[in-house]
Computed example of a mutant assay.
Amino acid sequence: MSEHSQLFKCLSEPVRLRIVSLLCQFDELCVCELIDILELPQSVISRHIGYLNRHQLLKSSKRAQWVFYALDKQHPFTSVIQSFLSSFGNDEPMLGDLKRAQQLQLNC
């Protein structure tokens, strides 16, 4: 399978798509924030973060005990992904994620 089709396969999973959507809205998020926003266990979030990392879509930075993730702006498909996700304006799960993110005091 080509690299391009693997990337789209990676993004076809709803949880990964929700993570990427949130990272389009916020400069960076840590796993603890993603757990609270997506209301999923740490193991699920970590597994999907790992998958996104394997496709080089994310950059990470460690601060104290926290690891923060951001979209890799250097990835050739980041702008395509951001444009694609902007068309999801009325998607219920993503709207709910954004609402929860705005209600939480972000930053661990």
Results as ranks from 00 to 15, higher is better:
residue 5 S to A: 12
residue 6 Q to W: 05
residue 8 F to T: 00
residue 10 C to Y: 05
residue 11 L to Q: 03
residue 12 S to H: 06
residue 13 E to N: 14
residue 14 P to G: 06
residue 14 P to F: 02
residue 15 V to Q: 06
residue 17 L to W: 05
residue 19 I to M: 08
residue 19 I to D: 02
residue 21 S to Q: 05
residue 24 C to Y: 05
residue 24 C to D: 12
residue 24 C to M: 07
residue 29 L to R: 03
residue 29 L to C: 06
residue 29 L to Y: 01
residue 30 C to L: 03
residue 32 C to A: 14
residue 33 E to K: 01
residue 38 L to K: 01
residue 42 Q to G: 10
residue 45 I to P: 00
residue 45 I to S: 00
residue 46 S to A: 15
residue 46 S to N: 15
residue 48 H to V: 01
residue 49 I to C: 06
residue 49 I to D: 02
residue 50 G to Q: 11
residue 52 L to C: 07
residue 53 N to Q: 15
residue 54 R to Q: 11
residue 55 H to S: 12
residue 55 H to L: 07
residue 55 H to M: 09
residue 55 H to Q: 13
residue 55 H to I: 01
residue 57 L to Q: 02
residue 57 L to H: 01
residue 59 K to L: 10
residue 63 R to N: 13
residue 67 V to M: 11
residue 67 V to D: 07
residue 67 V to Q: 10
residue 67 V to G: 05
residue 68 F to G: 02
residue 68 F to N: 04
residue 71 L to T: 00
residue 74 Q to G: 13
residue 76 P to L: 11
residue 76 P to S: 13
residue 79 S to E: 15
residue 81 I to F: 01
residue 81 I to H: 02
residue 81 I to Y: 02
residue 86 S to T: 04
residue 87 S to F: 06
residue 91 D to S: 12
residue 91 D to L: 07
residue 92 E to F: 13
residue 93 P to G: 08
residue 93 P to C: 07
residue 94 M to W: 08
residue 94 M to F: 07
residue 95 L to W: 09
residue 95 L to S: 11
residue 95 L to K: 15
residue 95 L to C: 14
residue 96 G to M: 12
residue 98 L to M: 13
residue 98 L to G: 06
residue 99 K to N: 09
residue 100 R to T: 01
residue 102 Q to G: 05
residue 102 Q to R: 08
residue 102 Q to C: 05
residue 105 Q to S: 11
residue 105 Q to E: 08
residue 107 N to G: 10
residue 107 N to W: 12
